[in-house]
Design a protein around this nucleic acid. Structure first.
Lengths: 244, 244
DNA sequence: GACACCTAAAGTGTATTCACTTTCAAGAAA
DNA sequence: TTTCTTGAAAGTGAATACACTTTAGGTGTC
Protein backbone atom coordinates (compact mmCIF):
# COMPACT_ATOMS: atom_id res chain seq x y z
CA UNK A 1 0.00 0.00 0.00
CA UNK A 2 1.74 3.12 -1.18
CA UNK A 3 -0.77 5.71 -0.04
CA UNK A 4 1.08 6.63 3.11
CA UNK A 5 2.98 9.35 1.33
CA UNK A 6 3.35 12.42 3.47
CA UNK A 7 0.78 14.73 1.96
CA UNK A 8 0.75 17.11 4.86
CA UNK A 9 3.18 19.64 3.51
CA UNK A 10 2.33 23.08 4.77
CA UNK A 11 -1.00 22.85 6.46
CA UNK A 12 -1.59 24.66 9.68
CA UNK A 13 -2.40 28.21 10.55
CA UNK A 14 -1.26 30.99 8.27
CA UNK A 15 -0.40 33.28 11.12
CA UNK A 16 2.65 34.08 13.12
CA UNK A 17 2.49 31.20 15.59
CA UNK A 18 5.75 29.35 15.50
CA UNK A 19 5.48 27.11 18.55
CA UNK A 20 2.79 24.74 17.24
CA UNK A 21 4.55 22.65 14.66
CA UNK A 22 3.19 19.17 14.05
CA UNK A 23 -0.34 18.96 12.68
CA UNK A 24 -2.70 16.67 14.53
CA UNK A 25 -3.47 13.22 13.21
CA UNK A 26 -6.99 14.38 12.45
CA UNK A 27 -5.60 17.02 10.12
CA UNK A 28 -3.34 14.57 8.39
CA UNK A 29 -6.07 12.03 7.83
CA UNK A 30 -8.49 14.71 6.66
CA UNK A 31 -5.97 16.05 4.15
CA UNK A 32 -5.13 12.63 2.80
CA UNK A 33 -8.74 11.65 2.33
CA UNK A 34 -9.66 14.99 0.81
CA UNK A 35 -6.80 14.84 -1.66
CA UNK A 36 -7.70 11.32 -2.69
CA UNK A 37 -11.33 12.27 -3.20
CA UNK A 38 -10.48 15.38 -5.19
CA UNK A 39 -8.13 13.34 -7.34
CA UNK A 40 -10.93 10.85 -7.98
CA UNK A 41 -8.95 8.04 -6.47
CA UNK A 42 -11.99 7.65 -4.24
CA UNK A 43 -14.88 8.27 -6.64
CA UNK A 44 -18.43 9.06 -5.61
CA UNK A 45 -20.13 6.14 -3.94
CA UNK A 46 -16.96 4.73 -2.39
CA UNK A 47 -17.47 3.52 1.15
CA UNK A 48 -15.05 4.92 3.71
CA UNK A 49 -14.84 2.60 6.69
CA UNK A 50 -13.20 4.07 9.73
CA UNK A 51 -11.82 0.72 10.84
CA UNK A 52 -10.26 -0.08 7.51
CA UNK A 53 -8.86 3.42 7.02
CA UNK A 54 -7.39 3.32 10.51
CA UNK A 55 -5.60 0.11 9.61
CA UNK A 56 -4.35 1.47 6.29
CA UNK A 57 -3.11 4.72 7.77
CA UNK A 58 -1.69 3.11 10.90
CA UNK A 59 -3.59 5.27 13.35
CA UNK A 60 -6.39 4.49 15.73
CA UNK A 61 -9.98 4.86 14.70
CA UNK A 62 -10.46 8.04 16.74
CA UNK A 63 -8.75 10.52 14.40
CA UNK A 64 -10.24 8.80 11.36
CA UNK A 65 -13.73 9.17 12.77
CA UNK A 66 -13.09 12.85 13.37
CA UNK A 67 -11.69 13.38 9.89
CA UNK A 68 -14.75 11.71 8.40
CA UNK A 69 -16.99 13.95 10.50
CA UNK A 70 -15.20 16.94 9.06
CA UNK A 71 -15.62 15.69 5.51
CA UNK A 72 -19.28 15.21 6.28
CA UNK A 73 -19.55 18.77 7.57
CA UNK A 74 -17.99 19.88 4.28
CA UNK A 75 -20.64 17.93 2.41
CA UNK A 76 -18.07 15.81 0.58
CA UNK A 77 -19.06 12.68 2.43
CA UNK A 78 -22.40 11.44 3.67
CA UNK A 79 -22.81 9.28 6.71
CA UNK A 80 -26.00 8.11 8.33
CA UNK A 81 -25.93 6.99 11.90
CA UNK A 82 -24.51 3.50 12.34
CA UNK A 83 -23.78 3.32 8.62
CA UNK A 84 -20.54 3.65 6.73
CA UNK A 85 -19.47 6.98 5.33
CA UNK A 86 -19.91 7.27 1.57
CA UNK A 87 -18.16 9.64 -0.80
CA UNK A 88 -20.84 11.88 -2.21
CA UNK A 89 -21.85 11.41 -5.80
CA UNK A 90 -20.44 14.30 -7.82
CA UNK A 91 -17.57 15.01 -5.46
CA UNK A 92 -15.21 14.68 -8.43
CA UNK A 93 -16.05 18.20 -9.63
CA UNK A 94 -15.55 19.67 -6.19
CA UNK A 95 -12.75 22.03 -7.15
CA UNK A 96 -14.46 23.32 -10.25
CA UNK A 97 -17.64 23.98 -8.31
CA UNK A 98 -15.68 25.61 -5.52
CA UNK A 99 -14.47 28.06 -8.11
CA UNK A 100 -18.07 28.93 -8.96
CA UNK A 101 -18.74 29.46 -5.29
CA UNK A 102 -15.80 31.83 -5.07
CA UNK A 103 -17.34 33.74 -7.95
CA UNK A 104 -20.36 34.38 -5.77
CA UNK A 105 -18.44 35.25 -2.63
CA UNK A 106 -15.20 37.00 -3.44
CA UNK A 107 -16.40 39.91 -5.59
CA UNK A 108 -18.75 41.03 -2.83
CA UNK A 109 -16.11 40.38 -0.22
CA UNK A 110 -13.71 42.59 -2.18
CA UNK A 111 -16.31 45.36 -2.29
CA UNK A 112 -16.81 45.09 1.44
CA UNK A 113 -13.10 44.90 2.17
CA UNK A 114 -12.45 48.05 0.15
CA UNK A 115 -14.20 49.97 2.91
CA UNK A 116 -12.54 48.21 5.80
CA UNK A 117 -9.03 47.02 4.99
CA UNK A 118 -6.31 48.88 6.86
CA UNK A 119 -3.59 50.96 5.27
CA UNK A 120 -1.01 48.79 7.00
CA UNK A 121 -2.38 45.66 5.38
CA UNK A 122 -2.48 47.41 2.02
CA UNK A 123 1.15 48.46 2.15
CA UNK A 124 2.13 44.96 3.24
CA UNK A 125 0.31 43.54 0.24
CA UNK A 126 1.88 46.08 -2.08
CA UNK A 127 5.29 45.02 -0.87
CA UNK A 128 4.47 41.44 -1.68
CA UNK A 129 3.28 42.50 -5.12
CA UNK A 130 6.59 44.25 -5.67
CA UNK A 131 8.42 41.06 -4.67
CA UNK A 132 6.51 39.08 -7.25
CA UNK A 133 7.29 41.68 -9.91
CA UNK A 134 10.96 41.42 -9.02
CA UNK A 135 10.89 37.66 -9.38
CA UNK A 136 9.19 37.98 -12.73
CA UNK A 137 11.80 40.42 -14.01
CA UNK A 138 14.62 38.23 -12.76
CA UNK A 139 13.13 35.33 -14.65
CA UNK A 140 12.57 37.26 -17.86
CA UNK A 141 15.79 39.22 -17.81
CA UNK A 142 17.85 36.23 -16.74
CA UNK A 143 18.30 32.82 -18.33
CA UNK A 144 14.67 31.79 -17.81
CA UNK A 145 15.94 28.91 -15.73
CA UNK A 146 13.55 26.63 -13.93
CA UNK A 147 15.08 27.77 -10.64
CA UNK A 148 13.98 31.33 -11.34
CA UNK A 149 10.62 30.11 -12.54
CA UNK A 150 10.23 28.15 -9.33
CA UNK A 151 11.00 31.21 -7.24
CA UNK A 152 8.58 33.31 -9.23
CA UNK A 153 5.91 30.67 -8.91
CA UNK A 154 6.32 30.45 -5.15
CA UNK A 155 6.17 34.21 -4.72
CA UNK A 156 3.19 34.43 -7.02
CA UNK A 157 1.22 31.86 -5.07
CA UNK A 158 2.14 33.36 -1.77
CA UNK A 159 0.90 36.77 -2.90
CA UNK A 160 -2.24 35.28 -4.41
CA UNK A 161 -3.00 33.58 -1.13
CA UNK A 162 -2.26 36.65 0.97
CA UNK A 163 -4.37 39.01 -1.11
CA UNK A 164 -7.45 36.84 -1.33
CA UNK A 165 -7.38 35.90 2.33
CA UNK A 166 -6.81 39.50 3.39
CA UNK A 167 -9.93 40.41 1.45
CA UNK A 168 -11.80 37.66 3.27
CA UNK A 169 -10.46 38.75 6.65
CA UNK A 170 -11.39 42.38 6.15
CA UNK A 171 -14.80 41.87 4.57
CA UNK A 172 -16.44 42.31 7.95
CA UNK A 173 -18.60 39.22 7.81
CA UNK A 174 -17.43 36.16 9.66
CA UNK A 175 -19.37 33.42 7.86
CA UNK A 176 -18.46 34.87 4.46
CA UNK A 177 -14.85 35.11 5.51
CA UNK A 178 -14.94 31.54 6.75
CA UNK A 179 -16.52 30.31 3.53
CA UNK A 180 -13.78 31.94 1.49
CA UNK A 181 -11.10 30.50 3.75
CA UNK A 182 -12.61 27.08 3.24
CA UNK A 183 -12.54 27.49 -0.53
CA UNK A 184 -8.87 28.31 -0.29
CA UNK A 185 -8.12 25.38 1.94
CA UNK A 186 -9.49 23.13 -0.80
CA UNK A 187 -7.50 25.03 -3.38
CA UNK A 188 -4.44 24.55 -1.25
CA UNK A 189 -4.93 20.81 -1.18
CA UNK A 190 -4.91 20.85 -4.95
CA UNK A 191 -1.70 22.86 -5.12
CA UNK A 192 0.32 19.67 -5.16
CA UNK A 193 -1.10 18.88 -8.57
CA UNK A 194 -1.43 22.35 -10.06
CA UNK A 195 0.96 23.97 -12.52
CA UNK A 196 1.62 27.65 -13.02
CA UNK A 197 2.69 28.93 -16.40
CA UNK A 198 4.37 32.32 -16.95
CA UNK A 199 1.28 33.44 -18.90
CA UNK A 200 -1.05 32.67 -16.02
CA UNK A 201 1.21 34.32 -13.49
CA UNK A 202 1.66 37.46 -15.58
CA UNK A 203 -2.03 37.85 -16.06
CA UNK A 204 -2.61 37.06 -12.38
CA UNK A 205 -0.22 39.76 -11.25
CA UNK A 206 -1.92 42.28 -13.50
CA UNK A 207 -5.35 41.36 -12.15
CA UNK A 208 -4.10 41.52 -8.61
CA UNK A 209 -2.54 44.91 -9.17
CA UNK A 210 -5.81 46.32 -10.48
CA UNK A 211 -7.60 44.80 -7.51
CA UNK A 212 -5.10 46.15 -5.02
CA UNK A 213 -5.33 49.62 -6.53
CA UNK A 214 -9.09 49.65 -6.24
CA UNK A 215 -8.82 48.62 -2.61
CA UNK A 216 -6.34 51.40 -2.07
CA UNK A 217 -8.80 53.87 -3.63
CA UNK A 218 -11.61 52.49 -1.46
CA UNK A 219 -13.48 51.87 -4.68
CA UNK A 220 -15.85 49.01 -3.89
CA UNK A 221 -17.43 48.91 -7.30
CA UNK A 222 -14.13 48.50 -9.12
CA UNK A 223 -12.84 46.05 -6.56
CA UNK A 224 -15.86 43.84 -7.06
CA UNK A 225 -15.59 43.90 -10.84
CA UNK A 226 -11.83 43.40 -10.75
CA UNK A 227 -12.25 40.34 -8.56
CA UNK A 228 -14.97 38.90 -10.78
CA UNK A 229 -12.78 39.47 -13.82
CA UNK A 230 -9.81 37.90 -12.12
CA UNK A 231 -11.74 34.77 -11.20
CA UNK A 232 -13.16 34.40 -14.68
CA UNK A 233 -9.70 34.80 -16.18
CA UNK A 234 -8.32 32.16 -13.88
CA UNK A 235 -10.80 29.55 -15.00
CA UNK A 236 -10.59 30.62 -18.62
CA UNK A 237 -6.82 30.14 -18.70
CA UNK A 238 -7.01 26.60 -17.42
CA UNK A 239 -8.55 24.61 -20.24
CA UNK A 240 -8.30 21.35 -18.29
CA UNK A 241 -10.76 22.88 -15.83
CA UNK A 242 -9.69 20.31 -13.27
CA UNK A 243 -7.45 22.40 -11.09
CA UNK A 244 -8.44 25.98 -10.70
CA UNK B 1 -27.21 23.44 36.22
CA UNK B 2 -30.31 23.76 34.06
CA UNK B 3 -28.73 23.63 30.65
CA UNK B 4 -29.54 20.00 30.01
CA UNK B 5 -32.84 20.91 28.40
CA UNK B 6 -33.56 18.81 25.37
CA UNK B 7 -32.79 21.19 22.55
CA UNK B 8 -32.68 18.56 19.90
CA UNK B 9 -36.20 18.85 18.62
CA UNK B 10 -36.35 17.97 14.97
CA UNK B 11 -32.82 17.63 13.79
CA UNK B 12 -31.84 14.86 11.45
CA UNK B 13 -32.30 14.30 7.78
CA UNK B 14 -35.18 15.93 5.99
CA UNK B 15 -35.77 12.93 3.82
CA UNK B 16 -37.93 9.89 3.90
CA UNK B 17 -35.79 7.74 6.18
CA UNK B 18 -37.89 6.61 9.07
CA UNK B 19 -35.68 3.96 10.67
CA UNK B 20 -32.99 6.26 12.07
CA UNK B 21 -34.61 8.00 14.99
CA UNK B 22 -32.32 9.15 17.79
CA UNK B 23 -29.73 11.75 16.90
CA UNK B 24 -26.17 10.98 17.90
CA UNK B 25 -24.68 12.50 21.00
CA UNK B 26 -22.35 14.53 18.81
CA UNK B 27 -25.35 16.16 17.17
CA UNK B 28 -26.98 16.93 20.47
CA UNK B 29 -23.87 18.48 21.95
CA UNK B 30 -23.22 20.46 18.77
CA UNK B 31 -26.76 21.83 18.75
CA UNK B 32 -26.68 22.79 22.40
CA UNK B 33 -23.38 24.60 22.12
CA UNK B 34 -24.37 26.33 18.91
CA UNK B 35 -27.64 27.55 20.39
CA UNK B 36 -25.92 28.88 23.47
CA UNK B 37 -23.32 30.69 21.38
CA UNK B 38 -25.92 32.21 19.06
CA UNK B 39 -27.93 33.31 22.07
CA UNK B 40 -24.82 35.00 23.47
CA UNK B 41 -24.92 32.85 26.57
CA UNK B 42 -21.39 31.94 25.57
CA UNK B 43 -19.97 35.25 24.31
CA UNK B 44 -16.87 35.61 22.18
CA UNK B 45 -13.72 34.72 24.07
CA UNK B 46 -15.36 32.10 26.27
CA UNK B 47 -13.24 29.00 26.73
CA UNK B 48 -14.94 25.73 25.94
CA UNK B 49 -13.21 22.89 27.76
CA UNK B 50 -14.12 19.44 26.55
CA UNK B 51 -13.63 17.92 30.00
CA UNK B 52 -15.83 20.43 31.74
CA UNK B 53 -18.53 20.32 29.05
CA UNK B 54 -18.53 16.56 29.21
CA UNK B 55 -19.18 16.73 32.93
CA UNK B 56 -21.92 19.34 32.57
CA UNK B 57 -23.71 17.50 29.78
CA UNK B 58 -23.23 14.07 31.36
CA UNK B 59 -21.58 12.51 28.35
CA UNK B 60 -18.06 11.32 27.75
CA UNK B 61 -15.46 13.60 26.30
CA UNK B 62 -15.51 11.85 22.92
CA UNK B 63 -18.71 13.38 21.51
CA UNK B 64 -17.84 16.77 23.01
CA UNK B 65 -14.48 16.79 21.26
CA UNK B 66 -16.21 15.98 17.98
CA UNK B 67 -18.82 18.68 18.45
CA UNK B 68 -16.09 21.21 19.13
CA UNK B 69 -14.28 20.08 16.00
CA UNK B 70 -17.46 20.74 14.05
CA UNK B 71 -17.86 24.19 15.53
CA UNK B 72 -14.27 24.86 14.58
CA UNK B 73 -14.93 23.74 11.02
CA UNK B 74 -17.84 26.19 10.99
CA UNK B 75 -15.49 28.94 12.11
CA UNK B 76 -17.55 29.69 15.22
CA UNK B 77 -14.87 28.37 17.52
CA UNK B 78 -11.11 28.49 17.33
CA UNK B 79 -8.87 25.83 18.76
CA UNK B 80 -5.13 25.53 18.51
CA UNK B 81 -3.51 22.20 19.08
CA UNK B 82 -3.28 21.28 22.74
CA UNK B 83 -5.13 24.46 23.68
CA UNK B 84 -8.68 25.00 24.78
CA UNK B 85 -11.34 25.87 22.27
CA UNK B 86 -12.41 29.52 22.35
CA UNK B 87 -15.63 31.05 21.09
CA UNK B 88 -14.67 33.34 18.26
CA UNK B 89 -14.91 37.06 18.82
CA UNK B 90 -17.89 38.39 16.91
CA UNK B 91 -19.80 35.10 16.94
CA UNK B 92 -22.74 36.97 18.48
CA UNK B 93 -23.76 38.36 15.08
CA UNK B 94 -23.54 34.98 13.43
CA UNK B 95 -27.18 34.79 12.37
CA UNK B 96 -27.28 38.30 10.97
CA UNK B 97 -24.14 37.68 9.00
CA UNK B 98 -25.43 34.35 7.80
CA UNK B 99 -28.33 36.26 6.30
CA UNK B 100 -25.87 38.40 4.35
CA UNK B 101 -24.20 35.24 3.12
CA UNK B 102 -27.54 33.91 1.95
CA UNK B 103 -27.97 37.14 0.02
CA UNK B 104 -24.85 36.27 -1.93
CA UNK B 105 -25.72 32.62 -2.49
CA UNK B 106 -29.43 32.12 -2.84
CA UNK B 107 -30.26 34.53 -5.68
CA UNK B 108 -27.69 32.86 -7.91
CA UNK B 109 -28.79 29.45 -6.73
CA UNK B 110 -32.36 30.32 -7.67
CA UNK B 111 -31.23 31.38 -11.12
CA UNK B 112 -29.37 28.11 -11.56
CA UNK B 113 -32.22 26.04 -10.17
CA UNK B 114 -34.69 27.63 -12.59
CA UNK B 115 -32.93 25.72 -15.35
CA UNK B 116 -32.65 22.43 -13.52
CA UNK B 117 -35.49 21.86 -11.08
CA UNK B 118 -37.85 19.07 -12.09
CA UNK B 119 -41.53 19.48 -12.85
CA UNK B 120 -42.31 16.92 -10.15
CA UNK B 121 -40.52 18.97 -7.53
CA UNK B 122 -42.29 22.11 -8.73
CA UNK B 123 -45.75 20.60 -8.44
CA UNK B 124 -44.87 19.24 -5.01
CA UNK B 125 -43.85 22.73 -3.92
CA UNK B 126 -46.97 24.25 -5.42
CA UNK B 127 -49.07 21.85 -3.40
CA UNK B 128 -47.30 22.95 -0.25
CA UNK B 129 -47.91 26.57 -1.20
CA UNK B 130 -51.60 25.80 -1.58
CA UNK B 131 -51.60 24.22 1.88
CA UNK B 132 -50.14 27.36 3.38
CA UNK B 133 -52.72 29.48 1.59
CA UNK B 134 -55.48 27.28 3.01
CA UNK B 135 -54.11 27.68 6.53
CA UNK B 136 -53.99 31.42 6.07
CA UNK B 137 -57.58 31.57 4.90
CA UNK B 138 -58.72 29.37 7.76
CA UNK B 139 -57.04 31.72 10.17
CA UNK B 140 -58.43 34.88 8.59
CA UNK B 141 -61.93 33.59 7.90
CA UNK B 142 -62.20 31.89 11.28
CA UNK B 143 -61.83 33.22 14.79
CA UNK B 144 -58.17 34.12 14.39
CA UNK B 145 -57.41 31.74 17.24
CA UNK B 146 -53.84 31.02 18.25
CA UNK B 147 -54.40 27.38 17.32
CA UNK B 148 -55.05 28.37 13.73
CA UNK B 149 -52.15 30.79 13.84
CA UNK B 150 -49.94 28.00 15.08
CA UNK B 151 -51.01 25.73 12.26
CA UNK B 152 -50.43 28.47 9.71
CA UNK B 153 -47.05 29.22 11.18
CA UNK B 154 -45.97 25.59 11.03
CA UNK B 155 -47.11 25.19 7.44
CA UNK B 156 -45.45 28.45 6.50
CA UNK B 157 -42.11 27.43 7.92
CA UNK B 158 -42.29 24.01 6.42
CA UNK B 159 -42.91 25.49 2.97
CA UNK B 160 -40.22 28.10 3.45
CA UNK B 161 -37.76 25.38 4.33
CA UNK B 162 -38.80 23.11 1.46
CA UNK B 163 -38.63 25.82 -1.19
CA UNK B 164 -35.25 27.22 -0.23
CA UNK B 165 -33.66 23.82 0.16
CA UNK B 166 -35.14 22.59 -3.11
CA UNK B 167 -33.49 25.55 -4.79
CA UNK B 168 -30.22 24.61 -3.15
CA UNK B 169 -30.56 20.97 -4.14
CA UNK B 170 -31.33 21.73 -7.76
CA UNK B 171 -28.79 24.51 -8.30
CA UNK B 172 -26.35 21.98 -9.72
CA UNK B 173 -23.37 22.98 -7.62
CA UNK B 174 -22.56 20.85 -4.61
CA UNK B 175 -20.52 23.29 -2.52
CA UNK B 176 -23.03 26.07 -3.08
CA UNK B 177 -25.85 23.73 -2.18
CA UNK B 178 -23.97 22.66 0.93
CA UNK B 179 -23.31 26.25 1.94
CA UNK B 180 -26.99 27.08 1.68
CA UNK B 181 -27.93 23.99 3.65
CA UNK B 182 -25.53 25.06 6.35
CA UNK B 183 -27.09 28.52 6.50
CA UNK B 184 -30.45 26.90 7.01
CA UNK B 185 -29.18 24.58 9.67
CA UNK B 186 -28.13 27.66 11.64
CA UNK B 187 -31.48 29.28 10.94
CA UNK B 188 -33.17 26.14 12.17
CA UNK B 189 -31.32 26.30 15.46
CA UNK B 190 -32.69 29.80 15.93
CA UNK B 191 -36.26 28.73 15.23
CA UNK B 192 -36.81 28.01 18.90
CA UNK B 193 -36.52 31.73 19.59
CA UNK B 194 -38.04 33.22 16.45
CA UNK B 195 -41.59 34.54 16.12
CA UNK B 196 -43.70 34.69 13.00
CA UNK B 197 -46.31 37.39 12.64
CA UNK B 198 -49.20 37.22 10.16
CA UNK B 199 -47.69 40.17 8.30
CA UNK B 200 -44.37 38.42 7.83
CA UNK B 201 -46.03 35.21 6.76
CA UNK B 202 -48.34 36.90 4.28
CA UNK B 203 -45.48 38.75 2.68
CA UNK B 204 -43.39 35.59 2.73
CA UNK B 205 -46.06 33.60 0.93
CA UNK B 206 -46.35 36.29 -1.70
CA UNK B 207 -42.60 36.36 -2.25
CA UNK B 208 -42.45 32.62 -2.44
CA UNK B 209 -45.28 32.50 -4.94
CA UNK B 210 -43.48 34.93 -7.22
CA UNK B 211 -40.31 32.90 -6.84
CA UNK B 212 -42.08 29.64 -7.54
CA UNK B 213 -43.73 31.07 -10.64
CA UNK B 214 -40.43 32.25 -12.02
CA UNK B 215 -38.97 28.78 -11.45
CA UNK B 216 -41.97 27.30 -13.24
CA UNK B 217 -41.35 29.65 -16.19
CA UNK B 218 -37.66 28.73 -16.19
CA UNK B 219 -36.97 32.44 -15.84
CA UNK B 220 -33.59 32.64 -14.15
CA UNK B 221 -33.41 36.39 -14.14
CA UNK B 222 -36.72 36.84 -12.37
CA UNK B 223 -35.98 34.01 -9.97
CA UNK B 224 -32.75 35.64 -8.93
CA UNK B 225 -34.34 39.02 -8.40
CA UNK B 226 -37.32 37.54 -6.61
CA UNK B 227 -35.04 35.70 -4.22
CA UNK B 228 -32.96 38.80 -3.55
CA UNK B 229 -36.13 40.78 -2.90
CA UNK B 230 -37.47 38.09 -0.61
CA UNK B 231 -34.31 38.02 1.46
CA UNK B 232 -34.19 41.77 1.78
CA UNK B 233 -37.82 41.85 2.83
CA UNK B 234 -37.20 39.20 5.45
CA UNK B 235 -34.48 41.22 7.13
CA UNK B 236 -36.37 44.50 6.71
CA UNK B 237 -39.43 43.13 8.49
CA UNK B 238 -37.47 42.07 11.56
CA UNK B 239 -36.37 45.27 13.24
CA UNK B 240 -34.65 43.40 16.07
CA UNK B 241 -32.29 42.01 13.43
CA UNK B 242 -31.32 39.30 15.84
CA UNK B 243 -33.25 36.40 14.42
CA UNK B 244 -33.62 36.41 10.70
C1' DG C 1 6.66 44.95 44.50
C1' DA C 2 8.26 42.44 40.14
C1' DC C 3 10.14 38.52 37.90
C1' DA C 4 11.89 33.83 37.07
C1' DC C 5 11.29 28.97 38.38
C1' DC C 6 8.90 25.10 39.76
C1' DT C 7 5.06 21.78 40.47
C1' DA C 8 0.41 19.96 40.91
C1' DA C 9 -3.97 20.28 38.68
C1' DA C 10 -6.47 20.61 34.58
C1' DG C 11 -6.82 19.83 29.73
C1' DT C 12 -5.79 17.79 25.23
C1' DG C 13 -4.72 14.04 21.66
C1' DT C 14 -5.06 9.48 20.79
C1' DA C 15 -5.54 4.44 21.69
C1' DT C 16 -8.23 0.93 23.52
C1' DT C 17 -12.42 -1.22 24.81
C1' DC C 18 -17.17 -2.73 24.59
C1' DA C 19 -22.07 -2.87 23.62
C1' DC C 20 -24.96 -2.46 19.87
C1' DT C 21 -26.04 -2.27 14.70
C1' DT C 22 -25.40 -3.42 10.11
C1' DT C 23 -23.73 -6.49 6.46
C1' DC C 24 -23.43 -10.51 4.08
C1' DA C 25 -23.13 -15.09 2.83
C1' DA C 26 -24.64 -19.87 3.78
C1' DG C 27 -28.38 -22.84 4.63
C1' DA C 28 -33.56 -23.70 5.06
C1' DA C 29 -38.04 -23.22 3.18
C1' DA C 30 -41.09 -22.00 -0.52
C1' DT D 1 -34.82 -21.58 -8.81
C1' DT D 2 -36.08 -17.72 -5.59
C1' DT D 3 -36.92 -16.02 -1.12
C1' DC D 4 -36.47 -16.04 3.86
C1' DT D 5 -33.80 -16.87 7.95
C1' DT D 6 -29.83 -16.62 10.65
C1' DG D 7 -25.52 -16.07 12.79
C1' DA D 8 -20.84 -14.76 12.46
C1' DA D 9 -17.89 -11.01 10.81
C1' DA D 10 -17.35 -6.27 10.31
C1' DG D 11 -18.57 -1.66 11.56
C1' DT D 12 -20.21 2.18 14.43
C1' DG D 13 -21.04 5.18 18.72
C1' DA D 14 -19.41 6.18 22.85
C1' DA D 15 -16.78 5.46 27.46
C1' DT D 16 -12.56 4.93 29.40
C1' DA D 17 -7.47 4.98 29.84
C1' DC D 18 -3.15 7.19 29.52
C1' DA D 19 0.82 9.87 27.98
C1' DC D 20 1.89 14.45 27.02
C1' DT D 21 1.00 19.69 27.20
C1' DT D 22 -0.70 23.70 29.13
C1' DT D 23 -2.26 26.38 32.99
C1' DA D 24 -2.17 28.38 37.38
C1' DG D 25 -0.67 29.16 41.73
C1' DG D 26 2.80 29.23 44.78
C1' DT D 27 7.84 29.84 46.34
C1' DG D 28 12.08 32.03 46.33
C1' DT D 29 15.15 35.63 44.62
C1' DC D 30 16.20 40.19 43.24
Amino acid sequence: MNNDVTLVSDLGEHNLKEDDDSPSLVDEVYQKLLLRIIRCELPGGTELKSTQLARELSVSRTPVVQALARLQADGIVIQQKNHRAVVREGAENWLVEIHELRLLLEPSAAAMAAQRITEAELTELQMQAADVKTCQQQYEAGDRSSAHLQKWSTASRSFDYALHLAIADYCGNLPISEAIHKCWSYKRVSYSAAEETPEIMTRGLYDHTVLLDSLKNRDSETASVAMAMHLRNASRMRPDRLIV
